[in-house]
Structures are given as C-alpha cells and as structure tokens.
Write a protein that binds this DNA or RNA. Structure first.
Length: 742
DNA sequence: GCGCCTTAGTTTTTT
DNA sequence: ACTAAGGCGC
C-alpha cells in the first residue's frame, strides 16, 4: 500500500520529502516535525526503489538513528536493516576499519574516551616534566580541552589561547609542545581519540580518490540531522562523500546550536546553500509540540539573543497553562518541591512523560535522593557515563591490553592495580611488553607475586580466548578481590555494574567493536531502553531532540544556568541562552522552572545566596505565573506547600531557618493579568523594569530575616554585601535579602 | 626512587 | 567525588 505523504505532511514538510535529488537544507524550528520529515523522506526514498544500503543517515546519537529507522520501518512495513547510520564518529570508525590498508596504521587500534585521553596527557606531561610545581600551569584536563578546541575549531593553540585564555599565553609554547607530544604518543601506541576518527577519515578520503569514489557510489543519499552542531571537518566529510551536486539533505536549527564549546560551527548550516549549488531551502515553522503559552516564553528567550534568529514559530495549540516559575528557599528544598510536583504530575501523566532537565549532571543529585526516598523510579541521561566509572574502566583495561598490547594507558591501569606497582614501574613494564624485553619482564615477575599472577592470568586468557563476554567474565573474576579490597563499602554496587557490563558484552561477537562502542555509543544507556514507569532526568544537552508533556527545569540561577564558566565571554553566554531555549522547547504541555534562593557550593563554603538566572530576569512578567515556597519558620521548610505569591508580602522572620526567602520577583508589572497576551513593546518595557542589582549605596546597618540585625562592612560589585552579624559572624549576602536601615 | 597515604582545593555540556 | 601535591616509609 503506497504511503499517502500528502495527507501526513504539511506543504513544507512535503516539499522536503518529495525533493529526493540534489541538495536540500531543512531549517526546522523546535518541534516542527523535523524527525517526521526525515522519517518520511527515508520511507519515500525506499518506496521509490532506492536500496536501503545506499542511504547514509548521520545523526547525533545512535539512539536517534535507530529510532528514525524504526519509525520508517513501521511506515513502510519492511525492514531497513541495510541503511547505514549513526554518529559521525561511529561511521568514521566503521569506515576506517573496513579499509585498514588505506589507513596505514599497523596493528590494532584502540579508541580513547575522555578519561583515557587525560591519562595519556598525564603521561606526556610527566615525561616532559611540564606543569610540575607551577600552580599557574593548566591541569591535564584543561590542556586536553585546549588541544581539542584547537583541532575542532582549526585554530592554532596560540589563537585559542588569545581568544579565551589569554592569561595562559606565557605557556603557549609549552602547550604547543604538549600537543605534539600527545600526537606522538597516540601514534606510537595505536590510540585514537574522538577527533582523530574524523580527521583520519578525511585524510584517507583525500589521499585515496578511488576509495572516495567507491564510498560515493555506496552512499548515494546522505541525510544529516542536527547540522547546526557539526564542526568544520564534519562538514567537509559530508561534502567529500556527497560530491559536487550530491544528494544531501541537511536538517537543523541555527537557534538550537549548543555545541560550539566542542567546535561546532553554526556557519555550516548558514553557508550550506553556498557550498552546495542549487540547494533547495525548506523552512519548517509550524510547531506541533508545544502550547502557545510555552512558545511565547521560548520566543521571548530567543528574542533577547544577540544573533537574530529569523524564527516565526506558530502553533494551533492555543490552550494551555502558563509556564510556572517556582521559587524555592534553597536547592535542597527545590529537590523536595520538584519531587512533590512529580508526584502530583503522576496523577495526570505516565512517569515517562515527565522529564526533569538541568545544566550539569551533578545538579540532579539532591533530586535523585528525594526521588529514592519517595520511591519514584527515574532514569538519568547525561552526566557521568557508565563506562567512565573506575571499576568499569579497570575491568575493560584487561581486555584492552589483550586486544592491543601497545595500549599503554590500559597497561598502566591493570599494572597499578597490582600491589606495590605505581606509575613508574607500570610504564617501565608497559614499555618492556611493547619491546618484548623478556629479561626485564621475567625479573619483575619474580619480584612481585601480584605481577606474576597478573601475567599468568593474561597468558591464560590469550591461550584460550573466547568472545567478549567470556573474556570479560574471567577478567571480572580476576579483578573482584582487588575491587572488594579497594571499595570495602560499596563493592556490591560496583559488582552489579560489572554484571551489567557483562550483559552488554554478550551482545558483541568482536572485541574491537565492543571496545569501540564502549567509548563511542554508551551502550549501557541504550540497553536500559525507555521504562514507562520511570521519570526522566537529563542534562539539557542529552535532552536534545526529545520531548515530554511535562518538563521541569532545575537551578535557574546565575552561575548554574547560565553556567559560571559562560559569564566571561558574550558568545558563551549566548550559547547558554540557546541551551535554555532548547530546554524549554522540550515541553509539550507543562513547563516549570525552579529558582532556588540559595545554592550549595562545596568550594564556596556551604550555602550561598543565588541570583535568579539572567534569562529569568529578562522574561516579561506576563509570560509566566509564579509560585513560591511559603515560609514556615521551621527547619523542615522542605515540606512547605506551594502557594501563589500574588499579593503575599514577606512575613516577619522568626528565627532559625536554614534558608531564606526573597522578594526578588516583585516587579512593577506584577499586577498585569497573567493570561493577557503580551505585545512586543509591552514585553520590552517589562524587560526594562526588571530588578537591577544594588551595587552601590552607603554602609550602615541592615536587617536580615534569619540573622537579624547586622553591620554592612562592604558592598561588593555583584549586588552582594558583606555583613557582620553578631553571633553569626561575617556573611556575604545578596542585597535583595537585606533591609537597609536608614 | 618509588609507592601510598593524607590533605587541600575543585566539579559544564559530549562524541 | 576526584585530582594534585606533600610527606613518610621501604
């Protein structure tokens, strides 16, 4: 039965689907049916008789690729197993693996994840003796990030430094040497980092015209999702594979570009029509996801952006509640309030229809505890990866040294697990293995029974290798005594993790693919699938492309969202704004933004007052309704119920509450009817009347709801005061929390 | 010289 | 929680 594309798509989507030859750029606003369009085009190509195997679908995650394939299969009623797809990195690695002679690297290759790369950088810095004892020298993680930026943005180290870290310019030449040392080290040990996969594929394609031709013939139709987040080498790879008048469809949204920090270049999508002559540009502007009140809010977020986005999103879903801003006393009570809200939403939604989003992985810790306490199941995306946990890396390292004996990073891991062996000895032994220095190896084995056991174990594995699952199983058995010794408290949890790793390994026949996917694809995440009974917790980055009926957003305060790291440079701040745009546009029906009054900072010495996020302060008051945690006066303020703040004044303080309340959201416009539509000029004037920080003013005495009367010792430039409270000591407090005495 | 323990100072986002 | 550095003991 032929698919009736006309009835299933709007005119713009239809145009994108019906255009099968030549370059097409689909500029797809949030929620405009981008995935639907890609899925239908996939189905259309196949229904026209195109071989699935000649279609290449490049997406941001493998999850996105498989989901699209499944949807297209459902549409077509046939399997599409032949379609090539996945991330740029996975595709590149798979292609390189298929043509090893063209790559020209001898022996097996190991893909390094971030942690491995840091280990290598640590070794290189140690070898060169750089950064030792010099506090001004950047740490290995930073050095690596710098090198990554330099490669991804294709700028010199010096240029990156002068743009974003000029205080490190004195170290420029040392850093350049480290970059070289890092490259050499990888080459000599058969190691590839993420960037290497892209650059190596490009080199191979350029150097081997006949191979390029073969790949062009193989991948006749190319579709690239999230094109705004490709970097320069990715764009060149697409161009190389497509040829001059290639059949490429790029899909993306310049307003949702959120990966500039790793070298994504939004210019790629903007210049696509120039690069591909005869490009047909299709704009998808009708939003099918969100209600009008949510769109009003997200449009407002974008309207403040420095780069103008020609976005004209509209929806037919006019009805819906206003987005809510919930002010909690602290990030601790925020967790409780969010858990309460989730319990309430559970009456109307399935758990999997509710998502909690946040800027950084650690920001959900308090909520995770609260949900555990209340017995609400959740699944977390983003943040620390399963495969980055130390015990997983340890267990996998045994497999890695077997697979690639030159893999010095893995050697260092397995060797330093042995008692009495540290970094130095480990590197000596790894070198001896590489050079086949039997004399040294025998001598070391005689000296250390733990080492003898390790080598005997590895020889045993090598003599009788099995599949990834059986090898891993034996490695875990060998590793378990070390693990229990290392983590007497929580080794059961870690053993359970290794058990899960075993289940993943069982789905792989080849060690190389297993190790590669561990670094590239986060197979643990895919294994868990979507649980209907679990609420989703996710970083905003990991939530990209997804949607939920109800979305909660945590920690909308300065330093958290926008991130502290983004405050220095305007372009970073703009990326944070787009990130918030991405976050809010995930919501279909209900959107709640949480603004805690204080945030806990281990480094900053406990709880600190927090300023509502710049982006929240910019929002016209009419676009949201506001709730605030009521002041109960007890330490268990977390159990306080929510109530509308309208007309509520801050009550008198009674003593010993660990958290504070603010009146920072009171603006002159608070009497505006919250359901009235707002015009652009109104929005602007609402903006102009946003509260401003009280940076200056006389010193003197002040009142604080919790600490009482205190002496203002200094006024700090970020709207905070240093106040000496009798009995409480010196505190740094936002001026808004203080009532000045005349 | 090297391993290992203690302590002080930091935690963004991802392939 | 995790890194880096300093100190102690072999």
């Amino acid at each position: 039965m032929p698919i009736d594309f006309k009835s299933q798509l709007n005119p713009a989507q239809l145009e994108a689907v019906m255009t099968t030859d030549g370059p097409v750029l689909v500029v797809a606003g949030a929620g405009s049916g981008k995935t639907r369009t890609l899925v239908h085009r996939l189905a259309r190509l196949v229904s026209l008789g195109v071989e699935p195997s000649s279609i290449l679908l490049l997406t941001f995650t493998r999850k996105a690729a498989t989901e699209m394939l499944h949807r297209a299969e459902k549409l077509l009623g046939m399997a599409l197993g032949g379609v090539q797809g996945g991330t740029f990195h996975a595709f590149s690695f798979a292609t390189l693996r298929r043509y090893p002679q063209a790559v020209g690297y001898p022996g097996s290759l190991t893909i390094m994840d971030r942690g491995d790369a840091e280990d290598v950088m640590g070794l290189v810095m140690g070898e060169k003796g750089m950064g030792k004892g010099d506090k001004s020298f950047p740490k290995k993680g930073f050095v690596l990030e710098l090198i990554g930026k330099s490669r991804n943005k294709e700028l010199s180290i010096h240029e990156v430094l002068s743009r974003e870290s000029y205080q490190l310019l004195p170290h420029a030449s040392a850093l350049e040497q480290l970059a070289e040392g890092y490259e050499d080290y990888k080459r000599n040990h058969g190691l590839l980092d993420y960037d290497d996969m892209l650059f190596t594929l490009e080199r191979v394609l350029v150097e081997n015209p006949e191979l390029l031709e073969a790949l062009r013939a193989r991948h006749r139709y190319i579709m690239v999702d999230e094109y705004q987040d490709t970097n320069m080498v990715q764009a060149r790879l697409v161009k190389l594979l497509a040829g001059d008048a290639g059949n490429v469809m790029a899909v993306g949204d310049d307003a949702q570009s959120i990966y500039a920090f790793r070298g994504a270049n939004v210019e790629n999508i903007l210049s696509f029509p120039r690069i591909y002559e005869g490009t047909r540009v299709v704009r998808l502007e009708q939003n099918y996801r969100s209600t009008q009140p949510i769109l009003d809010l997200t449009n407002s977020i974008l309207s403040q952006a420095k780069d103008r986005f020609e976005k004209n999103l509209f929806t037919e879903r006019t009805e819906g509640p206003l987005p809510e801003i919930v002010k909690a006393y602290s990030d601790q009570t925020q967790a409780k309030l969010a858990a309460d809200r989730i319990r309430e939403l559970r009456k109307r939604y399935m758990a999997c229809e509710i998502a909690v989003l946040f800027r950084a992985g650690y920001q959900s810790y308090a909520l995770e505890l609260a949900l555990n306490k209340e017995g609400i199941a959740f699944q977390k995306y983003g943040g620390l990866r399963f495969s980055e946990a130390a015990h997983v890396k340890d267990a996998v390292a045994y497999l890695r040294v077997l697979h690639n004996p030159r893999d010095a990073v893995a050697w260092k891991r397995v060797l330093t697990l042995v008692d009495k062996i540290g970094e130095k000895t480990a590197m000596k032994i790894a070198a001896a293995v590489r050079d086949n220095d039997q004399a040294l190896l025998t001598a070391q084995r005689k000296k250390n029974p733990g080492l003898e056991a390790l080598f005997a174990f590895l020889e045993d594995l090598r003599a009788d290798p099995g599949g990834p699952a059986s090898l891993l199983d034996r490695a875990v058995t060998f590793y378990t005594p070390t693990l229990t010794h290392l983590h007497p408290e929580d080794f059961p949890r870690r053993l359970a993790g290794l058990e899960q790793l075993g289940q993943i390994a069982a789905t792989y026949a080849h060690m190389e693919q297993f190790l590669a996917d561990l670094a590239l694809e986060n197979p643990a995440e895919e294994q868990k699938g979507v649980r209907e009974d679990a609420v989703v917790l996710s970083t905003v980055h990991s939530a990209k492309g997804l949607e939920w009926p109800a979305v909660l957003l945590l920690d909308l305060v300065d330093d958290r969202f926008p991130s502290r790291h983004a405050l220095a440079r305007p372009e970073d701040l703009e990326e944070e704004r787009r990130l918030l745009y991405v976050a809010c546009t995930r919501a279909k029906d209900e959107l709640t933004l949480f603004v805690p009054g204080t945030i806990y900072n281990r480094a900053g010495g406990g709880s600190q007052p927090a300023m509502p996020s710049l982006f929240v302060r910019e929002l016209p008051r009419a676009l949201y309704s506001e709730l605030r945690e009521t002041f109960s006066g007890s330490l268990t303020a977390a159990s306080a119920s929510l109530g509308s703040s309208f007309g509520t004044s801050v009550g008198s303080s009674s003593g010993n509450c660990g958290s504070v309340s603010t009146s920072r959201f009171e603006t002159p416009r608070r009497t505006t009817s919250i359901h009235a539509p707002i015009s652009e000029p109104e929005a602007r004037s609402a903006l102009a009347s946003s509260p401003s920080a009280l940076g200056d003013g006389p010193l003197g005495f002040c009142q604080h709801r919790i600490f009482g009367r205190g002496k203002v010792v200094a006024r700090l430039d970020d709207g905070k005061c240093r106040v000496n409270f009798p009995g409480f000591g010196m505190k740094v407090i936002l001026s808004e929390y203080l009532e000045m005495e005349p």
